[in-house]
Computed example of a mutant assay.
Amino acid sequence: MSRYLLNKFLFTVDRDPDLVERYRDDPQGTVAWWEANEANRILACHIGESSTWLAFADDERAALAGHDYPALFALGAHPFLTLTLFIAMFERDNSEPLEFQKEYARKLAHMSLPYPDIAT
């Protein structure tokens, strides 16, 4: 399990409007593409420089592919990264202000302290 890789996925997808739409429309394909092409790219480094060892665990891959933000939270993904990305993807589907944020809170209401560790 790599909280770093989960957070890197959430961070990089959230900052690219085309990737946000791709992830919304084809989560499984986007996760597979990102893991194969972007996961090992070193952030803020020279183009072409990468590592070779990072990969999602099966439960991480399934949570990402299923847009399962409660599972991502339980796996230690940073809640601000999940919230901002999922707002970008799903807020437009709601008719009431803050409706998605309230849904997010409801789906995480079963969590109690201590929350999962979000340190990377």
Rank of each mutant, 00 (worst) to 15 (best):
S2K: 05
S2V: 10
S2I: 05
R3H: 02
Y4C: 11
L5P: 01
L5M: 02
N7D: 09
F9C: 10
L10Q: 04
L10H: 01
L10A: 08
F11E: 10
T12A: 12
V13Y: 02
D14W: 00
R15P: 00
L19R: 11
L19H: 04
V20L: 07
Y23C: 12
Q28R: 15
T30P: 04
A32L: 15
A32P: 11
W34C: 11
E35L: 04
E35Q: 06
E38W: 10
N40A: 02
R41W: 03
I42Q: 01
L43F: 11
I47D: 15
G48T: 09
G48S: 12
E49R: 12
W53I: 11
F56Q: 02
F56K: 03
E60V: 09
R61S: 06
R61C: 05
L64R: 08
A65S: 14
A65G: 10
D68W: 12
D68V: 12
P70T: 08
A71I: 09
L75C: 15
G76E: 09
T82Y: 00
T82M: 08
L83K: 10
T84H: 05
T84W: 00
M89R: 03
M89C: 08
F90V: 15
E91A: 15
R92W: 02
N94E: 14
E96W: 11
P97F: 14
L98I: 05
L98F: 13
F100N: 08
Q101D: 07
K102M: 11
E103I: 13
R106W: 03
S112Q: 10
L113Y: 01
P114C: 08
